[in-house]
Each structure stands twice: as C-alpha cells, then as structure tokens.
Simulated assay, not measured.
Amino acid sequence: MTNIHAPEVLISEVGPRDGLQSVKATMPTADKLRWIDALAAAGLREIEVASFVPAQLLPQMADAAQVVQHALRHTGVRVMALVPNLRGAQAALQAGAQKLTLPVSASPAHSMANVRKTPEAMVEEVKAVLRLRDEMAPGVPVEVGMSTAFGCTLQGLVPEDDVLRLAVLLAEAGVDEIGLSDTTGMGNPAQVSRLFKRMFQEIGPLTGAAHLHNTRGLGLANGLAAYEAGVRTFDSSLGGLGGCPYAPGASGNVVTEDLVVMFEAMGVSTGVDLHKLMAARAPLKAGLPGEPLYGMTPEAGLPKGWV
C-alpha cells in the first residue's frame, strides 16, 4: 500500500509539544530526544518539537532550545516550534527553529483567557513576529493555528464569519499559512468541510493544517472531511498524547498511527513507515511511564497482508 511518489499528505507530528505540554509529568530531556529521533526515523517530515514559553509557566518546555538544536540533526524533517508572542519567536529563531506556529484564537473569550489579548491584538503580535522573522531568518515560514475555530468551551458557538474575518486579517498581515484547530473537540464533519471550503475561497493556498481533536470520537471523520475539502496537512499526536485532565478518556489530539492507517489504506501516501511509527511508542512510554496512550491501530495491529 506504500507509494513511491512524493507523499500526498503531510502529517505534522505535534506530540513533543502539544502532547507533552498537556500532561502533568515532565519528560526527561534525554527521553524526549530519543522519542524525536524515533519519530524522524519513521519518516515524519514535520515535527513540532517545543513551545517557547517561560519555564515557570510550562516546566515541560524548559529545554526547548536544546530540543530544537538536537532535532535539527535530522535532514528531511522540518523542525517546528510554537511561539505565543514576540519574545518566544525571538528565542525560537535563535535556537534555529525552521518553522514558527502561533496560536490565535477565533473566540474572544478563549483569547482573553489564554493570552490575555483580543484576537485583533493577537493579529498585531503576529505582525511584530513577521517583522522579526524578516530581520532574523527570512526563509522561515510563520503559520497561524486558529484555535477554537469550531467552537469554544467558554463562549460556546464561534460564528464561521468570525473565523473567516480573522483569517483574512492574518492573510493581509503576511502569514505564510493559516490552519484551523478544533481545540475543544466540538467540530463535526459537515462543519469542518464547510469551513475549510470557505477558507479556500477566501484565502486560497494560504489555507493550512487541520488540527483536530478526538474528544467526542470524531477526529478521523473530521480529518477525512478536511481532506475531501482540499486540506493536505494534518496535525496529530503519537498515541493521542495530549488530552485534557478535565475530560477523561481519549480527549486529546487525533492519533498519528490511526490517521496514517486511514490515509494509507485509502491509497493516499503519507511517507510514514507504520512499523517504525509503532516502534516510536517505546521511547514515549519509557519517558512517561504510566501515561495512558490511545489508538485503535496499536491495539488491533496492522491488517493482514499490510505492505
């Protein structure tokens, strides 16, 4: 079922950032580096390895610069870092990050709670990051992941027109890519399809990744809807790492293993070696003993005759 041509979809592994940031325990740096090595060996071409935030706020990310520098040894992997603001962007670029991603919330309520800024004020922060990027590292793409694009636990429904208006402001600011995130797992396939199609109409090729959560079991269905709407980059997390401590069960990101199986079984190439991807669970388990990992494929095994 593997395809020798260039992969048709990009699986962007966010476990080392989104996943580790969401669990209480802090993975030792050595284990983190081994895990990233295993993910790179599996053929993942983009890995979000760290978040550049103050260590006192997120001790899990205190080693961000060291992790980025280690990950840069892997050729063929784009090393991505999340930065919430200008200061974080400066630190990430100094460390050598090859892509920056900024979260901008479509929900004003979530934006105030998360970054103490309105969505409009975050657009100004993004402009400042773009200016810094132009000075420090002109070739580094800056992506915005629009969080709460499909609904918000604080304000409830997020009007699609609000999402699109914000996308246009970000496109005008000069962002390289704008993805949509189902931060709260409230999205459904019809909504995902409709909103991404409207995004393509509004901002065309700047439309970026689908960052989906499996909170209500709709992660893969939403991923398929996004694919059929034209999306070709998908964020996911090995073992579904990165749940919310207040929503027990598989509440985290879409499971990378299951997403890869879905696409490969459909004949859509990902460039990922599933056997090596499964093997990458071992360093994750070693670094976070006792942390629950999810995934239907790892439990069931690969189908008989899988190539």
Rank of each mutant, 00 (worst) to 15 (best):
A106W: 07
A106T: 02
A106Q: 03
S107T: 05
S107I: 09
A109T: 14
A109W: 11
H110D: 08
H110C: 07
M112A: 13
A113G: 13
N114P: 10
K117M: 11
A121Y: 07
A121L: 12
M122D: 06
E124F: 12
A128K: 08
L130H: 03
R131D: 04
L132T: 15
R133L: 08
M136L: 02
A137D: 07
A137L: 13
A137P: 07
P138S: 04
G139C: 04
G139D: 10
V142W: 05
V142F: 02
V144A: 02
V144E: 03
V144Y: 07
V144S: 12
M146P: 05
S147K: 10
A149G: 04
T153K: 09
T153S: 15
T153H: 11
L154C: 05
L154Y: 14
Q155A: 15
L157F: 15
P159L: 01
D161Q: 11
L164G: 07
R165P: 06
L166N: 03
V175K: 06
I178M: 08
I178T: 02
I178G: 11
S181P: 11
S181E: 01
T183V: 03
T183I: 10
T184F: 11
G185K: 01
G185C: 01
N188V: 13
N188W: 08
N188C: 13
P189Y: 10
A190E: 04
Q191W: 08
R194W: 06
F196H: 06
R198Y: 00
M199H: 12
F200N: 14
F200Q: 02
E202M: 14
E202Y: 04
G204L: 13
P205T: 15
P205A: 15
A210C: 04
L212T: 01
H213T: 01
N214C: 13
G217Y: 12
G217N: 11
G219C: 02
